[in-house]
Design a protein around this nucleic acid. Structure first.
Ligand SMILES: [Mn+2]
Ligand SMILES: [Mn+2]
Ligand SMILES: [Zn+2]
Ligand SMILES: [Zn+2]
Lengths: 132, 132
DNA sequence: ACACTTTTTTAGAATCATTATAAACTACAA
DNA sequence: TTGTAGTTTATAATGATTCTAAAAAAGTGT
């Protein structure tokens, strides 16, 4: 399996469930945004055996901690994740409740002038809300 | 009462509860960020009579709809609101779980180059995550 | 003040995403 | 193979938020 080593290198055992979730998440050219429930649906469609919801949560959080997924800060009843872990930004279509990638190159350079004592910047994320 | 007219102009009846919540939210020089539960605590401290949690939710959402409060998009188990409804951005201190205002003047102008067909930009918000 | 309508408040129940539990199962190495 | 730590799973618990429906308050007209 092509993800076995990746998992092992991260200190995660390459279980059947994790490998299947890897396939769904990463075995594609395009990155995408998803909620846990959307991911569960995808898993159901793309694989034969069912993975328990708890495992989906556990795995997504494990992958997030390892840096293979990113959580997107947005006010929604469900948490959104992103398989695109590069530095980038988002449109949020309020009507469709869908996220759209906004590359760094589509946003001018962002220069944060204010400094907070004893703290360093971990990330800078822009959320552009869209309406009709 | 100084908020009676403001409420009436918004089509909201100036009830005792709403006026008290106005005092807590707006009768101060400084704007601030809060969760519903933090607001409930504040109300308890600053007033004698208790306001039911449902009313706090109702009022906050009514005020948000009228533009007197803003919701801040952030991944937290509780929703954060802001009494500062001007265009501005935020630091989020991951350790302290606290928001800090970041004025537009502390961030260079943000130019969104990508356009989405049939949609217009409603807001552009920057979230800067801070770590130690 | 009174009668009438509409809005608001309220306690409690319901919802629902997420997390915790703890028992069964699995990976892996000694 | 045997032991152990890690993982999965069904299910329960949690907790923020929303819903419900009855009581209270506010507004309106007389
Ligand atoms: Mn999460
Ligand atoms: Mn809300
Ligand atoms: Zn993205
Ligand atoms: Zn603010």
């Amino acid at each position: 399996m092509k993800y076995t080593e990746k998992l092992r290198n991260s200190g995660l055992r390459p279980t059947k469930q994790r490998l299947q979730i890897c396939e769904v998440l990463f075995n594609t050219d395009k990155t995408f945004h998803f909620t846990i429930n959307e991911l569960e649906q995808k898993i159901k469609k793309q694989t034969n055996n069912k993975i328990s919801l708890a495992t989906v949560y556990n795995t997504v959080h494990a992958f997030e901690k390892k840096g293979y997924l990113k959580q997107i800060p947005i006010n929604s009843s469900e948490t959104y994740f992103d398989t695109n872990v590069t530095d980038h930004h988002h449109f949020y279509d309020l009507k469709e409740e869908k996220l759209i990638d906004l590359e760094n190159s589509d946003v001018g350079p962002i220069n944060i002038l204010k400094k907070i004592n004893g703290k360093k910047i971990k990330s800078v994320e822009v959320l552009v809300k869209l309406e009709d």
